[in-house]
Write a protein that binds this DNA or RNA. Structure first.
Length: 553
RNA sequence: GGGUCCGUGGCCUAGUUUGGAUAAGGCACCGUCCUUCUAAGUCGGUGAUCGUGGGUUCGAAUCCCACCGGGCCCGCCA
């Protein structure tokens, strides 16, 4: 829960005393530049058959007692409400100095579990898949920031067809070799080339699945070993872009622990039979198979078991999934809630697929970019740029900056786009460090730190803190941070934070070019305060989406 | 074919969940500003019938319907 001076709520409450019919869609934070808040009279005027002028008088009267309101005016149906110049800056400063953060938080008892990435341990993570990680990690950080007890989890698929193929491929093509990452991937790719149709797949892989699920010690041990090797490389790739997942849950643990049997037991009155195979029916008649006729389990059944397991330690469960899993998510949610009385809050964030230079990612066409490759190319590009701009810095410092720029850029370029949209990856755009990008954000931070580092003593200034338009806009944008944070949390949309960062930086850059800080006499104290608040809040917000901030760059 | 998501200047994106005051940024292009705190920046300019057509409304990028274009799903794969 966020703690801050919620002006919006206070204004609304004050107006409600004299005008109980008001609801929170009548009042908006104004974006048109007319005022700070704007009350729209249209709805109430019709509803109450009261003129806009009369409503205006009532509102003006109601706001008389509100100390931070400086002006109330009626303009073409809008009641424009202005806030005292000093209020925004004072409020933010108070929180930062007294509580250490703005907004402050109150620990929420709800335990939130966010599952993300969960890519099959059958190959390195590529840039398309990393969209999942970037979104998931962003959402997790937003929850933590808002005071939730948050855990992230990676579901390791070490059972089923794909990993059986990983095993079989290695046995077929590299039996005498060490199970290195390279050999495992090679075997996997080769076996997939031979599995040209579903019959071929069945023939090669199904006996292995059967062995696996019947508890054959050899295959169990091998698959765990192979998956661990591939998973390790994925974990390392994620680490490079600053993502660390709290828990790894192995799918196979539900096969062995008996959880799967309890799933079938508790669903027994819903389960139907199709020549030995087991399924449940959705309201539209669609059949969801839980078990093959040969007795082995299917993904849906194991995913039920997994979600029951999640519920043991969480009140709110969030899964980040590719849009190909959308129907699965809907059906899973239905079965859990309607058939099994599932109580935790369950949300799915699905994201559109990424493409590469306008065409589909495709492993077999070689049309793919691994996360590692992207990181190293971005770092290289970053190094080129920093070297040119900062020839004065040491080699190690240049590398440090290049890496921060690369990682931040990668995450920012992915997270800033709404998850529901398809995202086309283009090298040219991804490696550009200008405009609406992470370096743009980082650079503004470095500028603010540079100013602060040059401040020795601050002369006491004019305490009334009247502001010019640039100071005011910056102060107001800083103040608005909690609203964006709350929006991002409620809608599970980390891009709201990315866009807020851009908006905040824009207001800072305008301020920077118009308002000198050092040596500005009476203005200095106020401006230093603005710069200080800016650097803290920008770092706070940007860190949520994985931007790394440097004092200089 | 059925379901579902997306469609905003030449290109990319915000705004759509909660309908409101001249549709907001970036890239590219043209021009401006470094003897003020880092020019990865600032300012100005060119460029949008918000996919199309209806509807609801005092008011629609936003809500409803139809259509068009694209993604994804429709497996005893995951």
């Amino acid at each position: 829960m966020l703690i801050f001076d919620d002006l919006f709520a206070q204004l609304l409450e004050a107006i409600k005393i004299n005008l109980p019919e008001v609801d929170n869609t009548d009042l908006v934070s104004d974006k048109s530049g007319h005022a700070d808040y704007s009350f729209r009279t249209f709805r109430l005027s019709r509803l109450m058959k009261t003129s806009q002028e009369d409503l205006f008088s009532i509102i003006k009267e109601a706001l008389k007692s509100v100390g931070f309101v400086s002006n109330v005016a009626l303009s073409s149906g809008y009641v424009n409400i202005s806030i005292l110049d000093s209020f925004f800056l004072e409020s933010v400063s108070k929180y930062l100095s007294e509580r250490g953060q703005y907004p402050d938080t109150f620990q929420d008892p709800e335990r939130v579990l966010i599952e993300h990435t969960s890519t099959n341990p059958t190959g390195p993570i590529h840039i398309g898949r990393s969209r999942n990680s970037v979104i998931g990690d962003g959402i997790a950080r937003i929850f933590k920031r808002c005071g939730y007890r948050t855990t992230t989890q990676y579901y390791v698929n070490d059972s089923g067809k794909q990993v059986a193929a990983l095993y079989k491929g290695f046995q077929m093509y590299h039996e005498k070799d060490d199970p290195t990452l390279g050999n495992l991937l090679d075997g996997y790719q080769k076996i997939y080339k031979t599995m040209t149709d579903r019959e071929k797949e069945k023939e090669l892989v199904e006996p292995e699945i059967k062995r696996y699920e019947s508890g054959d010690a050899e295959i169990l041990q091998k698959i765990r070993e192979y998956c661990s090797i591939v998973l390790q490389s994925i974990v390392e790739s994620l680490q490079k872009i600053g993502i660390k997942i709290d828990d790894y849950v192995w799918e196979s643990s539900f096969l062995r622990g008996g959880e799967l049997d309890s799933v079938f037991e508790s669903l027994s009155d819903k389960i139907e039979d199709d020549s030995g195979a087991k399924f449940v029916s959705m309201p539209d008649g669609y059949k969801i198979y839980l078990r093959r006729s040969n007795g082995t389990s299917l993904y849906f059944a194991r995913d039920i078991a997994y979600h029951l397991f999640k519920a043991l330690n969480a009140d709110w469960i969030i899964d980040i999934l590719g849009e190909d899993h959308k129907d699965h998510a809907k059906n899973l949610s239905y079965v859990l809630k309607e058939f099994m009385g599932y109580t935790p809050r369950l949300d799915f964030v699905t994201y559109g697929f990424m493409s590469l230079e306008g065409s589909k990612f495709s492993t077999r066409m070689g049309n793919i970019v691994s996360l590692d490759e992207f990181v190293s190319r971005a770092t290289e590009e970053g190094l080129k740029v920093v070297r040119e701009k900062r020839p004065d810095l040491s080699e190690s410092r240049l590398h440090e900056i290049a890496e921060a720029v690369a990682v931040s850029s990668i995450r920012f370029s992915i997270v800033k786009v709404n998850a529901s949209k398809q995202l086309d990856f283009r090298w040219k755009d991804a490696l550009s460090f200008e405009g609406d990008s992470a370096p743009y954000v980082m650079y503004a931070y470095a500028r603010s730190r540079s100013i602060l580092s040059r401040i020795e003593s601050v002369p006491a200034g004019d305490k009334s803190w009247t502001m010019n338009e640039w100071e005011r806009r910056l102060a107001r944008t800083l103040f608005s941070y909690p609203y964006h944070l709350r929006d991002a949390l409620d809608s599970l949309r980390p891009e709201i934070i990315a866009n807020y960062c851009l908006e905040l930086v824009k207001s800072f850059n305008d301020f920077y070019s118009q308002c000198p800080v050092i040596g500005s006499g009476e203005e200095t104290e106020k401006r230093v305060m603005l710069v200080k608040n800016f650097s803290e809040i920008l770092k706070d917000a940007g860190s949520l989406i994985g931007i790394k901030f440097l004092k200089e760059m």
